[in-house]
Design a protein around this nucleic acid. Sequence first.
DNA 1: TTGTATGCAAAAGGTTTGCAATGAT
DNA 2: ATCATTGCAAACCTTTTGCATACAA
Lengths: 139, 139
Amino acid sequence: MAARCRERGLPVTPQRRAVLRALSARRDHPTAEQVHAAASARLPGMTRATVYRVLDALEAMGVVRRVDHAGAAARYEVDSGPHHHLVCVGCGRIADLHEPALESLSLPASRARGFVVKEYSIQFRGLCSGCRKQQRSRK
Amino acid sequence: MAARCRERGLPVTPQRRAVLRALSARRDHPTAEQVHAAASARLPGMTRATVYRVLDALEAMGVVRRVDHAGAAARYEVDSGPHHHLVCVGCGRIADLHEPALESLSLPASRARGFVVKEYSIQFRGLCSGCRKQQRSRK
DNA sequence: TTGTATGCAAAAGGTTTGCAATGAT
DNA sequence: ATCATTGCAAACCTTTTGCATACAA
């Protein structure tokens, strides 16, 4: 991580180290609040705001990832049977993808470790044609 | 939907109809706020709170689905390359699933409609062994 | 020394809840 | 008549932001 900071000319602060250590130490997927609790145990006085800013910075560096791509607000759809989603990272739009070939993926039991799958859905992330055009013309 | 309400002895209210109509009329995946705007155009006076309650009710009936399984708070993980997630619907825990066989899915170009996929991840929903035990013993 | 990060506190969404009144069956 | 639902308003939780200060390089 220090490397990635240097690449970008960004300072390596104790807070960044603390957040990354806290996150590396766990296998579950903690919330910002949980990261704050863990990190501020080692570095008392850290603010929640700092944790959010550090997580954003680390995400931008590609060190950390936000799971549950929870935009600010939840999205709804009429339940139309199993299908997947195309999510445009440019504009945030979500389109449905009905693709029978993707409805029968098998999850090796050996990997499931006692986990019983009831359903699954795939989230494809990329750029819609509109956002691609925009990006091209901007260059 | 009227049918599902009756099954459960729940009233079919104008608000429920308005929300479902609003949601059925769109293919994008509107936020609760957008649903509220659309529904209250037809049924002035509807509150945002009602929209949330109606969406919850419809989801419980299996008529509507919440995309962006945005729990209240975002979750983070250290970026460890491509992998998928096992999400327990019982306790909300998320586990990583590294499964090489699932890393080379192909999305038929014909279906993508100009959408260029950069990456994807699969979310398997089900019950972890702990929650399964609990559920069994409760019966 | 310079530019970025931090703490603090306040604001800004999004969502939930208590309560009295309304309404569906 | 009965029980769930609605509206209203306030509360709640998570995340973001402005500003002055502190700090890494």
